[in-house]
Structure formats: structure tokens, C-alpha cells
């Protein structure tokens, strides 16, 4: 089957029920997307399919119909996205393991809703666990990214 990931086509030959996560990590070698729980409970594996956030640990690769974006595909080559920049400005990550998933969920939120309220952030982000408890800075980063995106029209 053919998968379009971050704009590149990949021909892969695996069981159709293999979760997208393990195709990305073990078959293609894109390890920015993380394994956390395997049952769509923690959000560490969040990627986009046609811009919508999905839990790749529980998404059979055979059902992927659209274009896949992973953390490696955000921004443009050598340039971080506004969300990633806000994450650095606010010194958000601690251990960092969940952050790819957090950033993918936040990016999807902001592309649907350029001015999220705290309640909007709660709804969009409550599927992503951070055991280090970086939540206060995740919230601050999302607000900051929203502001930056408005200012630059990005």
C-alpha cells in the first residue's frame, strides 16, 4: 500500500491491521511520534490525517485514506511552526516524551479555532497526558501561538 507522510510517498508492505504508529516508527523510521499506551488513552502517538488529529497507536494502517502529518512534518524545512516556537518560548517540555503528541493536538486545535478559550483548550487537549505536568505551560503556549499566528497571519 501507499502512504503519503509529510508530503513523501512511501510504499509499504505490512498487515493492514498494523497500527499506523508502528508503521511510522518501525517500518519507516519516523520516531518523533511516540508509543505511550497502545489504546488511545494518552495521546503521545497523535498525528494528523488530512489535518485531523488521530491516535496512531489505534489506527489500522489499512484504513488510512488521507495524507499523514507527523511532528517531523510541521513547519517547513529548517523553520519551526508557530506552535513549536511558542513551546520553546514558554519552555514547555520537561521529559519531552509526550510533547510531539501535545504539539500535534494543539496544532489541530489552532487550525480549526484560531482563538481558543481555556475551555476549548481543555476539550481539545484532555486526551493528551503529560506525567511531568507541563499542563500550565501547554496552556500558555497555545494562547501564545494563537496570538503569534494572528499577528503574522500564519
Amino acid at each position: 500500500m501507499n502512504l503519503n507522510i509529510n508530503g513523501d510517498d512511501h510504499e509499504i508492505n505490512v498487515e493492514t491491521e498494523m497500527p499506523l504508529l508502528w508503521v511510522l516508527r518501525d517500518e519507516i523510521g519516523l520516531t518523533g511520534t511516540k508509543f505511550g499506551c497502545g489504546i488511545a488513552q494518552c495521546g503521545a502517538c497523535t498525528v494528523h490525517i488530512d489535518g485531523q488529529p488521530v491516535r496512531s497507536c489505534s489506527y489500522p494502517v489499512g484504513q488510512v485514506k488521507g495524507k499523514v502529518t507527523t511532528i517531523e512534518g510541521l513547519g517547513s524545512p529548517g523553520v519551526l511552526s508557530k506552535v513549536q516556537e511558542a513551546w520553546i518560548d514558554n519552555q514547555t517540555p520537561q521529559c519531552g516524551y509526550c510533547q510531539s503528541g501535545q504539539i500535534m493536538s494543539a496544532t489541530a486545535l489552532l487550525s480549526n479555532n484560531p482563538s481558543p478559550t481555556d475551555d476549548d483548550i481543555d476539550r481539545a487537549m484532555k486526551g493528551n497526558i503529560c506525567r511531568c505536568g507541563s499542563y500550565p505551560r501547554i496552556r500558555a503556549s497555545i494562547h501564545a501561538a494563537a496570538k503569534a499566528m494572528k499577528e503574522t497571519g500564519a
Binding site: L80, I88, P93
Partner: peptide, 19 residues
């Protein structure tokens, strides 16, 4: 307060964990 050295790699997916 200084910018942490480990953070840039933790926002673009390049930070290397054992996994």
C-alpha cells in the same frame, strides 16, 4: 533563567529516547 538546552529537540521530534 536561561533557555534549556534539551528543549529544541523536544519540540521537533528529534530528541532521542531509548525507544
Amino acid at each position: 533563567s536561561v533557555p534549556r538546552v534539551d528543549i529544541p529537540a523536544k519540540v521537533d521530534g528529534t530528541a532521542e529516547f531509548a525507544i
